[in-house]
Amino acid sequence: MEKEKFLEVRNLKVVYQTDAATVHAVNHISFSLARGETLGLVGETGAGKTTTALSILRLLPERTARIQEGEILFEGNSLLPLSEAEMRKIRGEKISMIFQDPMTALNPVIPVGRQIAESLILHNEQGLSRDAIEELVEKSLEMVGIPASRKGEYPHQFSGGMKQRVVIAIALACNPDLLIADEPTTALDVTIQAQVLRMMKDLRERLGTAMIMITHDLGIVAQICDYVGVMYAGEIVEYGRMEDIFDAPRHHPYTLGLFGSIPDLESDARRLTPIEGLTPDPSNLPSGCKFSPRCPQCRDVCRQKAPDIWQNGQHRIACHLYSGKEAQT
């Protein structure tokens, strides 16, 4: 079953080059996304999730980051060769991004209404009048549950959850086709998290926006995603439909580790079973399978050779445990 490919990332490799070291942030990852679908990218801090997202928008730090290999296709067109001016037309209008920390993502000296209006003005192809834009600003504020009368207020007058709503309103102002949400709820407390998530889900359903949800919270993935990519040390170690990740019998040991790290109400375990060790230093990655030093099922071959990909339908796992084995059904 070949999906209609709306966004396709092929073999992407990103490094950060500094004087001291070369940091391998993203190593040959590939995934694709169809219109209206949501992909969750899960993984620990430093797994390369945000780098992947910034690569799609071509917003990586100019001086240090380099996309070494790979291709990013959006609606069939490659994004990497585009000029800065062409890229600007895509940013905000076709692809927009919700950033991780709402406390710092808003400009403190510009009223929130103006910050929402800015993307509308920048992508104003229909030639909307000033009043029409103001009306749209008010509408998008109300859409995220903020009274339109507060559009003249500054970010410091809003609470954290409200700020994140403003950030979401900015990202959705131009009805983008693709929304990248980079840990949109991490900085919020749990009750607000639930509100924001529900709101994003509603909006996605209403607007038909495709979404990449970057998170390290498997609960969020379960709530909102159609597909999941589990990232480790810049690679997607397991990929599949949400059911594949949560219900299928075979998993990458890292995915199992992630699940072992969240409390389960039904089991009697008194302690969580976290993954031992730390994520590898991305400037000095281990050879073979990158997870091998921390893997409870590590064998000799894991340290020598990078694993092949085991595939069952859309479920893909990069692990030696399953190499050569037939797909179970």
Partner: peptide, 22 residues
């Protein structure tokens, strides 16, 4: 290097707008 500058860039603002306005 602030986050809100990245937000402005993500909106598609030109470099000049980013520097002078934000």
């Amino acid at each position: 290097r602030q986050d809100y500058i990245r937000t402005a860039r993500a909106k598609g603002a030109s470099e000049r707008t980013v520097i002078w306005r934000h």
